[in-house]
């Protein structure tokens, strides 16, 4: 009996103006059997850490409420790569209708002057047994 294949799938959204609200509506690939968890990163982690908040829904259910600070699902290099995610459904969330929606809000912060940046949502997905 083989083990389950876990991979990272990346979904980007661009924040182009200060105070912008952007939505990333994602349809997961059909090969996804379970959602293990999620993490956020950015090409400007300093801006996302101070300016970002979000809401995340999967299969129509709210996993993180509106206004959740982005930094709560950001991870530094002091965490091992295999542990850099916030689990959904104890790490075995049924993808259901395969829809995941990220509503990201940029908010002014006195310690972070706005510049355009990219928000990357990584979804760790379980593709089932591979060997």
């Amino acid at each position: 009996m083989g083990s389950n294949k876990i991979v990272q799938r990346r979904y980007d959204v661009q924040v182009t103006t200060a105070g912008q609200q952007v939505q990333n509506s994602i349809t997961l690939d059909v090969d996804v059997e379970k959602i293990k968890g999620v993490m956020l990163t950015s090409d400007r982690e300093d801006l996302m850490y101070l300016r970002g908040s979000f809401k995340l829904q999967a299969d129509g259910s709210e996993c993180f409420p509106d206004g959740t600070p982005a930094r709560v699902i950001m991870f530094g290099l002091g965490i091992g790569p295999g542990n850099r995610y916030e689990p959904l459904g104890n790490g075995s969330f049924d993808p259901g209708n395969m829809n995941v929606t990220l509503d990201y809000n940029d908010t002014n912060h006195p310690q972070a002057v706005f510049e355009p940046y990219t928000v990357s949502l990584y979804i760790h997905v379980n593709l089932g047994e591979f060997a």
């Binding site: 083990s3 389950n4 991979v7 990272q8 091992g80 790569p81």
Partner: peptide, 29 residues
């Protein structure tokens, strides 16, 4: 394919205070 194109390299980096045997991204289990 185990890592899709465009995945950021930093997702597989570690600082020195990660325990040595926790530094890898596992293939399956």
């Amino acid at each position: 394919e185990w890592v899709e194109a465009g995945t950021q390299a930093k997702n597989f980096m570690n600082s020195s205070n990660v325990d040595y045997w926790l530094r890898m991204w596992p293939f399956g289990d």
